[in-house]
Nucleic acid binder design. Sequence first.
DNA 1: ACGATCGTCTACCAATTGGTAGAGAGATGA
DNA 2: TCATCTCTCTACCAATTGGTAGACGATCGT
Lengths: 198, 198
Amino acid sequence: MAERSTRDRILEVSLDLFGTRGVDAVSLDEIARAVGVRKQTVLYWFESKDDLVDEVLAVAAAELVIVIDAALRAAPDDPLDRIDAVVRAVFRPAVRRPALLGLIREVSRLDTEPAERLRSRIQSLVDRAVSYLGAEMDAGRIRRGDPGLVAALGYATLTGIATEPEALRAVGWQPTPAGLRQLRDELRAFLRAALTPT
Amino acid sequence: MAERSTRDRILEVSLDLFGTRGVDAVSLDEIARAVGVRKQTVLYWFESKDDLVDEVLAVAAAELVIVIDAALRAAPDDPLDRIDAVVRAVFRPAVRRPALLGLIREVSRLDTEPAERLRSRIQSLVDRAVSYLGAEMDAGRIRRGDPGLVAALGYATLTGIATEPEALRAVGWQPTPAGLRQLRDELRAFLRAALTPT
DNA sequence: ACGATCGTCTACCAATTGGTAGAGAGATGA
DNA sequence: TCATCTCTCTACCAATTGGTAGACGATCGT
């Protein structure tokens, strides 16, 4: 059982490979080999490599949205606690599969065209987050600032730290379970301090 | 006049192209064309593409180190002010040439081998920063935490925000001079809040 | 029972890539 | 003057890339 469809397996393998090694560095041949199939089968399921990249991005974005939504539904009322809940929720999959955030990050930096599609796909989530931040700032429960830029800064911190193992190695950090926990807690404290009203 | 050597021009053009479009996506032919020379001339000055990437990274790292050092020498004593000075100093070149941080970021995420060399090149700067943070934490002038991880988080925030124009566009930000100033100030406030003792 | 559709395959292909071999122009030093 | 060195060039090349054309067996609806 667990007979995942070929298409799904291609998507999953592609996410991992694209995310860890970069889109350009991974060929269709390599994806096919990892799936246990020929390149032409990949091209049967996806019109082109660009098409594949797009669909992989859609999957990654959807995964993130699901995780975030679930975390928010279960979170308490205080805005700092809610942000904390999102960080904890995103951190786990992000570290277990750096590919996820890594791919989103790489694509949105390099290729403007698929990045545009990705952006439009999660725009509503972004808008919600920004207006939420704005409301909480007005209520004095979050440090004042431009809500959009503060949101972007929080995003940059989270994805930056999750996608740059080399920077962490430079400061002597190691990816052990204890290290991961410590990193997560340090990230939470960092963001909490950055957002606490003065 | 301004007769930059072919070698220097190759380095400069490569930094821009690699940084904005990614190392893999830029061919030696394209670099050569942009310089106004043939590919073989590029390969005359640099043994291979890998070699070129390495040297470009060395140049980028050196540029950053110079900027940071200069900012620190002129900075006041208070640690938050010193960090502020570094942010302001790095922000200008980073935004004017996103390639600079973008390249460092891409390479350190994807290719472990050149990333290793890059890391060793700036390790002393990192060590200095981390031990400085540790000392100031002991003195109660910076929020307590693991100095290494706090340094990495600050780095992640700065490079993240400077290398992800798409995330900024998603929150409605525009790269006008006024927008840049606002972004810089928001970044400074964000980091200052994240590091201020509670 | 049989045609159509589905999923995967083998066989190619044109374009591009990083890289080699070596010629030739111009300056330099003996 | 001649040999050498520096720099850029033309001419190739093998490997890889994304992609096309079409054969083949299995499955399914009628």
